[in-house]
Amino acid sequence: MKYAARLINLRKHYQLGDHEVQALRGVSLDIPEGDFLAIMGSSGSGKSTMLNLLGALDRPTSGQYLLRDRDVSEMTDDELSEARNSLIGFIFQSFNLIQQYTVLENIEVPLLYRSGTTSISAADRQKCLLLADRVGLTERLDHRPFQLSGGQQQRVAIARALVNDPTIILADEPTGNLDSATGEEIMRILTELHDEGRTIIMVTHEADVAANANRQIIMKDGVIASEGILPGNKRVRA
């Protein structure tokens, strides 16, 4: 089986004043390509730390994190940036669009930081337009984030996450700031992406949102407390 990401006995300790906080205490997890994984857990469970490590925003204290074939654990800051740019697509709870940019410019941002390429080609532009069309924003390419609804903003973020064809899509509470109808809409897009074969890791504390995934893990006290298919799971991948 090909893995999109593998976590091998991952530990993360923080120094907080005098005492050490063990945020992750040995997590091992295999994420095969095409997986749709939901990470659940209450606050303080190590969920956020896990997300930061998965997103290559941070390095583990010990253990290994393999993203595709690359070991993220020992990367320099620049290499981490490159990994985030080319291997990970972020979707945040609060959308995190750049306020002074238009929809199209926001979708293009990851292209600005590609290594090797110096400019945005016509093909790149075409791709951005296709992605905007895909999330239904063709009519609003010139709009700025404050002119969009929350759902529209999140769709821009999804298009942005896809622009560099990442290995994994990392969604942090993607529906947390949306009403349930809009949230369902966003979940539908994510499910479609999953159906296309993309690997999605989603952090959420809502069971019915997590139910969209085909696999759930529950974090507790820095370890994976339970793993499996929750009751009410609608989709099981063959």
Binding site: S81, E82, F90, N96
Partner: peptide, 16 residues
């Protein structure tokens, strides 16, 4: 600060 964080998450190096 938030914008800087977003850019870093999307792959901007310190240099960028």
């Amino acid at each position: 600060t938030r914008e800087i964080g977003i850019r870093r998450a999307l792959g901007a190096r310190q240099r960028d």
